[in-house]
Design a binder for these strands. Sequence first.
DNA 1: ACAACTTCGCTAGCGATGCTAGATTCTGAA
DNA 2: TTCAGAATCTAGCATCGCTAGCGAAGTTGT
Lengths: 193, 193
Amino acid sequence: MTIQSRRERERAEREKLIITAARELAETEGWEAVTTRRLAERVEYSQPVLYSHFKGKDAIMAAVAVEGFGELAGELRAARTAARDEAGALEGVGQAYVAFAERRPALYDAMFRRGVDLPFATPQVPPALAASFQELAEAVRPHAGDDDLGLLAETYWAALHGLATLTLGGRLPRELHERRLALLLARFTAGRG
Amino acid sequence: MTIQSRRERERAEREKLIITAARELAETEGWEAVTTRRLAERVEYSQPVLYSHFKGKDAIMAAVAVEGFGELAGELRAARTAARDEAGALEGVGQAYVAFAERRPALYDAMFRRGVDLPFATPQVPPALAASFQELAEAVRPHAGDDDLGLLAETYWAALHGLATLTLGGRLPRELHERRLALLLARFTAGRG
DNA sequence: ACAACTTCGCTAGCGATGCTAGATTCTGAA
DNA sequence: TTCAGAATCTAGCATCGCTAGCGAAGTTGT
């Protein structure tokens, strides 16, 4: 019994090691630098070991993405609860969201840009992802008025996602980002002049 | 003189052929199916000819993207000019934008999702891309109020881009897209209740 | 303690990728 | 007709994700 549990523990540790190594490699050199060979070298095992933990490279990316969802949820929550008022909460969450994408572009890539095929719009959505969305929804709630809260939160999310990805991809000049976000917030905040 | 111009013409035709083949292949099977070998086979030349026209596969994608910008500009303009009033123009352009992404996902991928490294926020921006943005800006203008028109148009664009990509990637359920777009429009339309 | 068996991780290799060097064929002018 | 230069192809490199199959462990039963 103990012997098997020890093995399972070691396996879990190694799996965590793989995920961490993949994430670090992606964050420092981008996902195109994360090859199975380099990853195997990094964790000091041979390539096939990776496939005993994950179905393939995409599954490793998905695991990294799940980690990211947890962190995003935490940062959104911190931003929301630190706000003084309802408008500040919406703004803080928006800023935190884009800042997250800006600070961890590779992580954000795995979470929202690559086709990692995680369950999103289904009941089996990862809890951390649901928590992230919930933070957005709570920030949006005071400004929803008669609109459907979930739909409005999704729309706000989409707008933030658009700002983040277009800025990240060099489509929008970074130095004007704050002003764009301010415009968006003005349009999403209830009770504006 | 004529002999050289004939060669140049043939070269230009072949280049166009390559771009079209790449686009068709991408639209029917996705960009991951567009390999240099398959592309070469499709245009009935060997691989190296591709490299006499384009620096690499990315450059071919960029050329396809430029084609797409032209079509997008046309569709946005058609939607805007067909609208009855100012609110209808904003709505029409928004619908047309997302419909374009929905109808030509591979083309949209090349234009806005892949890192094709085209000049965006610089003076050398492709004319067709500038025209697309101009259409968005014109649709936004009546609703800008005291806000900076360019910035607001960028923000509207980002919101549409977010809706399009998240829906395309399965992050948002497609069947509720129209209602999300309606919410966005309500927040961007001037003179709402 | 030893043999049999299972689990584990490795070496080696497959097919495919983007891209390129060098040989070869074709073209047009002398 | 010969020949230089351009155009094109064949063949190959390094690398990719992934897997078959072997050998060395570790575990279990006698």
